[in-house]
Design a protein around this nucleic acid. Structure first.
Lengths: 212, 212
DNA sequence: TTATTGACGTAACAATTGTTACAATCTTAT
DNA sequence: ATAAGATTGTAACAATTGTTACGTCAATAA
């Protein structure tokens, strides 16, 4: 366990200032390790814990009642799923699906304490507010791509976002996976990627796309 | 001025608990009356004031760099434009366009004080948090309609939302206005509305649509 | 009244996106 | 090695949405 022996307090101190809050979170929360592809928040689940990403990346998806899904944004180190707060406080089921995009380490905080932490600790308030702001902004950018862009631009933006999040020019996704995240079909993605390849924006390999 | 002699403190007391904060807001803010169709936040403007809706309805639109616009949600009595906070704190220009959907009365709060109010007053924090949550949720519903629904369903949802916001089964919009808000063309809206009429979901009159 | 303008209807066509079907290639299990 | 499954390519076609063009009708101003 040596390489995975995280000191949660050290991690939290980068996010939160008050030592008592760090102690509370460290005491009341729990570590959770998830493998790439594993569910962190399942659809229609009543989340009782809010995850903070320590290492790794979470992918947040929206879904409708027919099982269609669409990618919203990534959560990276130090970030949290702000919508969990809403879900918990209002006690309604999440229309979110949160999946580990890479092997990730999370700190799960019981949502029962969120409200009191918001009351007691200014830096927790700032953390939550900042989360909301960032997610709100990203959500709008995603919405922009849906309503203002054609599919080829939208796919390209998706690839660039993925590159930005992962820090790698190589994207290990199949056409089917991309289609699922953009709520379209595999054939359409294949067609669009071929077009992007002809425009020399990407190079395609098996199970892998390279951004040029 | 008798019928427009609002008591801002009475209005605020429905939203905010602390009397000192009510006094501060009443002293530092200003009343603004806008006629239907007037701009409240113009595109690419650096908002220095955050509006609270006292009476009336504001329509919040998103726009891109090409001048295309799309409807996001309405703001009604007691609600505020949460994104103003982000815009102001981060000092970046708004990608929003806020328009009076009906004749409205607003209370404009200087954004310079927002941060200190958030620090000092729990009920202002709750107010801002609740605004973020509600807007986040509405934004997701709007996003759903863009990515999961066909245009006819999306238009119908748009009409139902407008009915909900205005409290009237009669919608006084031209096809062109609807097209602008949904980022499509007049001809397409005419086609879709004709279809909804045949399905007996609406009735059309000049400058007016009736929800059945 | 007449002219002008705005709102709406509709046809014809174009562009984009979705669907179905099938082939080729690579990977993995047996 | 062979079979089975997963991944990608591509054609043909359908459905949806966007564009252009032009017509009718109602409201309004001159």
């Amino acid at each position: 366990m040596s390489e995975t022996n995280f000191n949660i307090k050290d991690t939290l101190s980068g996010i939160i200032q008050e030592q008592p809050l760090i102690d509370e979170i460290a005491t009341l929360g729990r570590l959770k390790k998830v493998k790439a592809g594993a569910n962190v928040v399942s659809p229609n689940q009543n989340a009782s814990e809010m995850p903070i990403v320590i290492t790794g990346i979470l992918r947040v998806m929206r879904h409708d009642e027919n099982g269609n899904e669409v990618f919203l944004y990534y959560l990276e180190g130090g970030q949290t799923c702000a919508m969990s707060i809403t879900c918990c406080i209002e006690q309604k089921k999440s229309a979110f699906h949160v999946v580990a995009e890479e092997d990730s380490v999370l700190w799960m905080m019981p949502t029962a304490y969120l409200d009191s932490w918001m009351q007691k600790y200014p830096s927790f308030r700032r953390f939550v507010m900042r989360s909301y702001q960032m997610r709100f902004d990203e959500l709008l950018t995603t919405l922009d791509s849906m309503v203002f862009m054609h599919l080829d631009e939208r796919v390209y933006k998706y690839l660039l976002d993925k590159k930005q999040a992962s820090g790698s020019y190589e994207i290990n996704k199949t056409h089917q996976q991309i289609a699922d995240e953009l709520n379209t079909s595999r054939v359409v993605i294949s067609r669009v990627l071929k077009k992007l390849e002809k425009e020399e924006k990407i190079e395609q390999h098996r199970n892998k796309i390279e951004i040029l």
